[in-house]
Amino acid sequence: MLEKIHINIKVPNETCYLGLIGKIGEDLAHTLARSAVNREVLGYELNTVLTEAMANVIFHANRSDPTRSIEITLSVEGNRIIIKIYDEGHGFEAANRALAAPCTPDDLSERGRGIFIIRSLMDSVTYRRMNGKHVLEMIKTFH
Protein backbone atom coordinates (compact mmCIF):
# COMPACT_ATOMS: atom_id res chain seq x y z
CA MET A 1 0.00 0.00 0.00
CA LEU A 2 1.22 3.50 -0.82
CA GLU A 3 2.30 5.16 2.42
CA LYS A 4 0.67 8.58 2.84
CA ILE A 5 1.28 10.99 5.72
CA HIS A 6 0.62 14.73 5.87
CA ILE A 7 1.62 16.96 8.80
CA ASN A 8 0.86 20.67 8.98
CA ILE A 9 2.66 22.87 11.53
CA LYS A 10 2.63 26.59 12.27
CA VAL A 11 5.11 28.13 14.69
CA PRO A 12 6.19 31.68 15.61
CA ASN A 13 9.19 33.10 13.75
CA GLU A 14 11.66 32.30 16.54
CA THR A 15 14.78 30.13 16.73
CA CYS A 16 13.63 28.42 19.95
CA TYR A 17 11.37 26.24 17.76
CA LEU A 18 14.19 24.91 15.58
CA GLY A 19 14.74 21.91 17.85
CA LEU A 20 11.04 21.04 17.91
CA ILE A 21 10.64 21.14 14.13
CA GLY A 22 13.87 19.22 13.58
CA LYS A 23 12.70 16.56 16.04
CA ILE A 24 9.36 16.17 14.25
CA GLY A 25 11.27 15.51 10.99
CA GLU A 26 13.50 13.01 12.77
CA ASP A 27 10.52 11.22 14.34
CA LEU A 28 8.76 11.11 10.96
CA ALA A 29 11.70 9.19 9.48
CA HIS A 30 11.44 6.67 12.30
CA THR A 31 7.78 5.95 11.52
CA LEU A 32 8.39 4.99 7.88
CA ALA A 33 7.23 1.48 7.14
CA ARG A 34 9.87 0.63 4.52
CA SER A 35 12.38 -1.65 6.15
CA ALA A 36 15.23 -0.84 3.74
CA VAL A 37 15.36 2.80 4.83
CA ASN A 38 18.18 3.75 7.19
CA ARG A 39 15.92 5.65 9.56
CA GLU A 40 18.80 6.99 11.69
CA VAL A 41 20.49 8.63 8.71
CA LEU A 42 17.26 9.84 7.09
CA GLY A 43 16.06 11.24 10.43
CA TYR A 44 19.28 13.18 10.93
CA GLU A 45 19.08 14.53 7.39
CA LEU A 46 15.48 15.70 7.83
CA ASN A 47 16.37 17.30 11.17
CA THR A 48 19.24 19.11 9.43
CA VAL A 49 17.37 20.41 6.37
CA LEU A 50 14.39 21.53 8.48
CA THR A 51 16.70 23.39 10.86
CA GLU A 52 18.64 25.03 8.03
CA ALA A 53 15.59 26.01 6.00
CA MET A 54 13.67 27.33 8.98
CA ALA A 55 16.62 29.39 10.24
CA ASN A 56 16.94 30.85 6.75
CA VAL A 57 13.30 31.92 6.79
CA ILE A 58 13.52 33.33 10.34
CA PHE A 59 16.55 35.54 9.66
CA HIS A 60 16.14 36.44 5.98
CA ALA A 61 12.60 36.12 4.64
CA ASN A 62 10.93 37.08 7.93
CA ARG A 63 13.78 39.36 9.08
CA SER A 64 13.80 38.04 12.68
CA ASP A 65 10.33 39.49 13.27
CA PRO A 66 8.78 37.44 16.14
CA THR A 67 5.26 38.60 15.24
CA ARG A 68 5.48 36.66 11.98
CA SER A 69 4.96 32.93 11.73
CA ILE A 70 6.23 30.03 9.65
CA GLU A 71 4.11 27.31 8.14
CA ILE A 72 5.64 23.93 7.46
CA THR A 73 4.15 20.87 5.81
CA LEU A 74 5.77 17.44 5.91
CA SER A 75 4.37 14.84 3.52
CA VAL A 76 5.21 11.25 2.75
CA GLU A 77 3.87 10.00 -0.55
CA GLY A 78 5.07 6.51 -1.32
CA ASN A 79 8.86 6.71 -1.34
CA ARG A 80 9.03 10.51 -1.38
CA ILE A 81 9.27 12.98 1.49
CA ILE A 82 8.11 16.45 0.56
CA ILE A 83 8.82 19.39 2.88
CA LYS A 84 7.33 22.81 2.21
CA ILE A 85 8.17 25.91 4.23
CA TYR A 86 6.03 28.98 3.64
CA ASP A 87 6.94 32.58 4.38
CA GLU A 88 5.34 35.92 3.69
CA GLY A 89 8.57 37.84 3.86
CA HIS A 90 11.18 39.46 1.69
CA GLY A 91 14.38 38.40 0.05
CA PHE A 92 12.83 36.27 -2.67
CA GLU A 93 15.39 37.23 -5.31
CA ALA A 94 18.34 36.84 -2.93
CA ALA A 95 17.09 33.43 -1.81
CA ASN A 96 16.78 32.28 -5.40
CA ARG A 97 20.29 33.50 -6.19
CA ALA A 98 21.66 31.62 -3.16
CA LEU A 99 19.85 28.46 -4.25
CA ALA A 100 21.30 28.75 -7.75
CA ALA A 101 24.87 29.23 -6.53
CA PRO A 102 25.51 27.70 -3.10
CA CYS A 103 28.80 28.66 -1.49
CA THR A 104 31.95 26.65 -1.89
CA PRO A 105 32.29 25.00 1.51
CA ASP A 106 36.09 24.99 1.38
CA ASP A 107 36.35 28.64 2.23
CA LEU A 108 36.52 30.03 5.73
CA SER A 109 33.41 32.17 5.55
CA GLU A 110 31.28 32.04 8.67
CA ARG A 111 27.94 32.04 6.86
CA GLY A 112 26.32 30.61 3.76
CA ARG A 113 26.68 26.86 4.28
CA GLY A 114 22.97 26.29 4.96
CA ILE A 115 21.84 26.21 1.34
CA PHE A 116 24.79 24.02 0.38
CA ILE A 117 23.83 21.54 3.12
CA ILE A 118 20.17 21.50 2.04
CA ARG A 119 21.09 20.94 -1.60
CA SER A 120 23.53 18.18 -0.64
CA LEU A 121 20.98 16.24 1.43
CA MET A 122 17.83 16.66 -0.69
CA ASP A 123 17.13 15.53 -4.26
CA SER A 124 15.22 18.62 -5.31
CA VAL A 125 15.09 22.16 -3.87
CA THR A 126 12.98 25.00 -5.30
CA TYR A 127 11.82 28.38 -4.00
CA ARG A 128 8.85 29.99 -5.71
CA ARG A 129 5.87 32.28 -5.30
CA MET A 130 2.54 30.60 -4.65
CA ASN A 131 -0.80 32.20 -3.77
CA GLY A 132 0.77 35.40 -2.47
CA LYS A 133 3.32 33.53 -0.35
CA HIS A 134 6.78 32.13 -0.94
CA VAL A 135 7.38 28.43 -0.59
CA LEU A 136 10.64 26.55 -0.26
CA GLU A 137 10.02 22.98 -1.41
CA MET A 138 12.48 20.19 -0.68
CA ILE A 139 11.98 16.64 -1.91
CA LYS A 140 13.84 13.48 -0.95
CA THR A 141 13.28 10.08 -2.51
CA PHE A 142 14.16 7.05 -0.41
CA HIS A 143 14.35 3.40 -1.35
Binding site: A55, S109, R111
Partner: peptide, 16 residues
Protein backbone atom coordinates in the same frame (compact mmCIF):
# COMPACT_ATOMS: atom_id res chain seq x y z
CA UNK B 1 24.48 15.27 18.80
CA UNK B 2 23.38 17.86 16.24
CA UNK B 3 25.13 20.82 14.63
CA UNK B 4 23.86 23.16 11.91
CA UNK B 5 25.56 25.72 9.66
CA UNK B 6 25.33 28.39 12.38
CA UNK B 7 27.20 26.16 14.83
CA UNK B 8 29.81 25.41 12.18
CA UNK B 9 30.09 29.14 11.44
CA UNK B 10 30.81 29.97 15.09
CA UNK B 11 33.61 27.40 15.18
CA UNK B 12 35.07 28.77 11.91
CA UNK B 13 34.90 32.27 13.39
CA UNK B 14 36.76 31.07 16.50
CA UNK B 15 39.33 29.26 14.37
CA UNK B 16 40.10 32.42 12.38
Amino acid sequence: RFIDSSGLGVLVSGFK
